[in-house]
């Protein structure tokens, strides 16, 4: 799943796929608030899910995305 998330993030953020590690903070990948909504949109498209607004404040690192994706998918 990390690979697919990394590819999705790298489509939007000014970074390479290999820069995206589990513990990386999104802000360190150059993802500001505007890019963040684009990343969420791309993740929703890629995984065919709906990410609820209330989850957004808890997403700081790539790992937060992975965990939430796991929860949403379940």
């Amino acid at each position: 799943m990390l690979n697919k998330v990394a590819e999705t993030i790298a489509k939007i953020a000014p970074c390479n796929v290999e820069d995206v590690k589990s513990e990386t903070k999104l802000i360190d990948l150059g993802i500001d608030s505007l890019k963040a909504v684009s990343v969420l949109f791309e993740l929703e498209e890629a995984f065919d899910i709906e990410i609820p607004n209330e989850l957004i404040p808890s997403i700081v690192t790539v790992n937060d995305i992975l965990q939430n994706l796991g929860d949403i998918s379940r």
Binding site: L34, V37, S38, L40, F41, E44, E45, E50
Partner: peptide, 9 residues
Amino acid sequence: SRVHPLTIP
């Protein structure tokens, strides 16, 4: 069911 988030700006 969803549109691109940059549609408005």
